[in-house]
């Protein structure tokens, strides 16, 4: 079914761009804040490795 070159038309391109944007957004967010905490907080902002800014980074 999927053989050879990807056929492209305008709507396919639009869908691809939308998927691309969502993909980039998700990756960007994970890259910026680290893997998501349940709390929606940021992992990178935490001084402790693996900690989460809103949860457990205050543990010594």
């Amino acid at each position: 079914m999927l053989k050879g070159e990807v056929e492209m038309n305008v709507s396919s391109l639009v869908v691809l761009v939308v998927i691309g944007i969502f993909f980039a957004l998700a990756v960007w967010r994970v890259a910026k804040k680290g893997a998501p905490c349940e709390c929606g907080g940021s992992r990178k902002a935490c001084s402790r490795k693996g900690g989460c800014s809103c949860c457990d980074c205050c543990e010594d």
Partner: peptide
């Protein structure tokens, strides 16, 4: 929606089977 928009099979597979 993808069918109506005439999206190609490849992109459709990406959206439906993949994402």
């Amino acid at each position: 929606a993808l069918d109506k928009a005439g999206v190609s099979d490849t992109v459709k597979s990406l959206v439906v089977d993949g994402a």
